[in-house]
Amino acid sequence: MTNTDWPLWEVFVRSRRGLSHTHAGSLHAPDAEFALRNARDLYTRRGEGVSIWVVPSSAITASSPDEKDPFFEPSADKPYRHPTFYEIPEGVKHL
């Protein structure tokens, strides 16, 4: 990082109450306060959000594509986790 190069931040926006924050994009800022303000100006200037999180990109730990199989495939063969796995006689309500 040169002395004029600001770090990268990831921006998460809650579009309205009741919904989770979702990743909106990233931006550069010298510090957290400016990251928050820049995010407000950039990602909510058309009223797209009611709350914002900013996280330094370097603070994110991500699963690597190499881990893809061991990480995500085991869950694919557990259909009993999903409600459609179960057969319920017709006419049974509220289930």
Binding site: N3, D5, H21, P30, D31, A32, E33, L36
Partner: peptide, 28 residues
């Protein structure tokens, strides 16, 4: 300008964690 903001951030980081009072940051 970019240098100044980066320098300020470095100074603040060196001074230790921020309080909400100094950041004025809004709570998520």
């Amino acid at each position: 300008v970019r240098e100044a903001a980066a320098a300020h951030a470095a100074k603040r980081a060196a001074r230790g964690p921020l309080t909400t009072e100094t950041t004025g940051a809004t709570r998520a």
